[in-house]
Every structure is written in structure tokens, then in C-alpha cells.
């Protein structure tokens, strides 16, 4: 089991990505799918997970909901990488004043709780998933940068770095290729997996809260589906198809589990 776990984790993580591709390829219209004659249908051959209380196909919405987090969370990862990796790597490599300044800046960002930071950004600049992704990426960057900083600093004077320099490898090449790519890509990947999971949870939470007040003030607003707003939309309905509430919750749990397993396997092999 423990040997299978990393693979199961990766499989669970890849699942939403595959679903995302499927959803982009498919021609499901989230807006026009309402059909109250199908309200709260139980799962059947035509609708594998049944329908929600407006008669929309739960499975299709579950699939389409991947659009609300897969792309944005990848974007969040890119943002975190673009900010966190250079900041951490350069301050670790250079040390001294540049490192102090960069780390001061990052610590300032990190001192705000991430969730609060995201909410602040939403409140100030409006509520869109891309913006939330940007905020999440920025909010996560200090964590990534700090991790990389610590590692680069400890690797900075290892023999092979000196040898590489002696061989005439340019600092940039040693830093980016040998230190970051060859030696720390797992670390970076693990942080990306963590951020992916974090963003999924964030988006789901925000969309859930947004879905509760019926007006979609946070996160993804109906009719666009999100696993969070799907739960919020259904759970108060006394006659709801139980799958319409459970399925998005289970999907979230599975992907998070996948992220945990994958992340753990990346740590184990690192050591």
C-alpha cells in the first residue's frame, strides 16, 4: 500500500487535470442546462450523479467545475514560482544586504494570514478567480522563497558548487541548473502540489461562502460551477439529490488526499 501511495496520489492529482482537459474539450453549456423537470433527480444512466434542484446535471457540473480551479491554480503556481523561486534563490546565493531586503519584503507579505490577504485583494479589486489565483500565488510565494532560501544557503558552499565554479560554470548555471533544477526540483514541485491543493481548498471555501448568501459575493458565482458553490447551492434543499451535495465534497477530499500523498512521497525521496 505504502509503495502504491505515491502513484495513487499522482493519479488523484492528475484526475482533475484530465477532467479539466475533458471539460475544455466538451461542449457543456453551464448556463443553458437548467431544466426544472429534472429537479433533484437521483443518479441514473442518463445522469450518473443525478441532477441538482434546478435540474442541472451534477456530473457535468462537477467536471466543468475543474475549470474554476485547475487553470487558476496552475496560474497561482506560476505566480508563486516567478516570485518565490528567484527571490529565494537569489537571496540564498547572494546573501548580505540583497537577501535581507528581499526576505524583509517577503516576511511582510507572509505576516498576513494568507486567507485574509486573499480576502483583502478580493475586497479591493473585485472578485474573480484569476485575481484570487494571483493573490494566492503572491501569498504563497514567501513560503516557497523561504524554503528555497534555506536550502540554497546551505548548498552555497558545498564542494560541488566550488568545483563547478572552478570548472568555469557560470553562477547562474550553477544556481538555476545544479542547485534549483537538479537538486531542488522535488522541493519546488512539492510546494507546487501544496499550492495546488491550497488553492483548491481556498477556491472551494470562498465559493462555498459566496454561494451561501445566494449572491456569489466571493469565489466563483453561479451559474458557473465550483465544487464549493455546488455544495452551498444544494445543502439547504430538503429534497436535494444527496449526490449533488456529496459529490463535490468527495471530489475535493480526493484531490486533497492525492496532494497529500504526492507531497509526502516527494519529501521521502528527497531525504
Amino acid at each position: 500500500m505504502s509503495a502504491l501511495r505515491p502513484w495513487a496520489g499522482v493519479a488523484l492529482l492528475l484526475l482533475p487535470v484530465l477532467i479539466w482537459v475533458l471539460s475544455l474539450a466538451a461542449n457543456y453549456d453551464v448556463i443553458a442546462d437548467v431544466d426544472v423537470s429534472r429537479a433533484s433527480l437521483a443518479p441514473s444512466v442518463d445522469h450518473w450523479l443525478g441532477c441538482d434542484h434546478l435540474g442541472r446535471d451534477v456530473l457535468w457540473r462537477l467536471i466543468t467545475a475543474s475549470e474554476s480551479f485547475v487553470g487558476p491554480s496552475l496560474f497561482a503556481c506560476v505566480v508563486a514560482l516567478v516570485i518565490g523561486v528567484p527571490a529565494g534563490a537569489l537571496s540564498g546565493w547572494l546573501g548580505g544586504l540583497p537577501a535581507s531586503l528581499t526576505r524583509f519584503g517577503l516576511t511582510t507579505v507572509a505576516s498576513l494570514p494568507r486567507f485574509v490577504l486573499v480576502l483583502l485583494v478580493c475586497a479591493a479589486f473585485g472578485n474573480s478567480v484569476q485575481l484570487i489565483a494571483l493573490a494566492a500565488g503572491v501569498a504563497y510565494a514567501p513560503t516557497l522563497a523561504e524554503a528555497i532560501y534555506a536550502r540554497i544557503q546551505s548548498f552555497r558552499h558545498r564542494g560541488f558548487v566550488l568545483a563547478g565554479q572552478a570548472h568555469g560554470l557560470r553562477s547562474g548555471r550553477i544556481l538555476w541548473l545544479h542547485l534549483l533544477w537538479v537538486n531542488h526540483r522535488r522541493l519546488i514541485l512539492r510546494h507546487c502540489v501544496q499550492l495546488f491543493a491550497y488553492f483548491l481548498l481556498l477556491e472551494t471555501t470562498l465559493s462555498y461562502i459566496g454561494g451561501l448568501d445566494g449572491a456569489g459575493s466571493f469565489g466563483v458565482a453561479q451559474p458557473d460551477p465550483s465544487w464549493g458553490n455546488m455544495i452551498a447551492f444544494e445543502w439547504r434543499e430538503p429534497q436535494a439529490n444527496i449526490w449533488a451535495t456529496l459529490a463535490p465534497g468527495l471530489a475535493t477530499a480526493l484531490v486533497l488526499l492525492g496532494a497529500t500523498w504526492t507531497g509526502r512521497s516527494l519529501i521521502e525521496e528527497q531525504a
Binding site: 448556463i31 442546462d33 434546478l54 445566494g214 451559474p223 447551492f233
Partner: peptide, 11 residues
């Protein structure tokens, strides 16, 4: 219940 009506109408 505006949300239901709005989504439905939009659809």
C-alpha cells in the same frame, strides 16, 4: 431565492 430564479432565467 433570487439565485435560483436568476440562474434559471439566464438559462
Amino acid at each position: 431565492s433570487a439565485q435560483e430564479v436568476v440562474i434559471n432565467l439566464q438559462s
